[in-house]
Amino acid sequence: MSAHSHLDGQLPHEPERATLEGRNKVLGFWLFLGGETVLFGTLFSAFLALRDQVGDGNPTSQELFKLSLVAIATVLLLTSSLTSVFAIQAMHRNQVKSMQLWLIVTVVLGLGFLGLEIYEFFHYVHEGHKFSTSAFSSSFYTLVGFHGAHVLFGIVWISLLIGQVYRKGLTVVTAPKVYVAGMYWHFIDVVWVFIFTVVYLMGKVG
């Protein structure tokens, strides 16, 4: 245990890269995000190929989307990305308390986003835009839902990490985990920017 129980003050500047395991984790996670990019790229392609297949009598994207609601969700998620940056910066300054605080803010913002998305989906289903309504609806829910599932996973993951850091402190073992979770959070944020543009803005324009 002694090897890992650094006091906070003794942590190296970039604790996530202090060990080979940490470096492996960061690099591996970059590559994983590369794979995730292909995954979302394929989902986007499928959505673009099918988005005009609305079917007779079903609500079109122009009728469905309420940009104001989506805009609020976007602001929430973008802000949460910023707060996660603050968390990593705090980690690099070795301010564990501050880091945890920012992580908690990030999780809360993420929960807000998720709540809005769930409300939005309920609303759509009520309007007759169900998962099995048309090719448009299936590809819409799959793409946006995949992203939503990623957000949910991120929230659970970061919450667990907050608990871990609380119990074990910031070490060369926990630091790479926090750092990698931060990368993940940025990634789903970037994906959302594309969803907002491709699905909602382009859907509104037609």
Binding site: L39, L43, A46, Q53, V54
Partner: peptide
């Protein structure tokens, strides 16, 4: 993975990715 997910959704949850009658391709 995405292809299989889409096919699985078509088969298990009546999605329309490849269901021509629902606008699938």
């Amino acid at each position: 993975t995405v292809g299989l997910v889409a096919l699985m959704f078509d088969r298990l949850f009546s999605a329309n990715f490849f269901e021509v009658s629902g606008g699938g391709n």
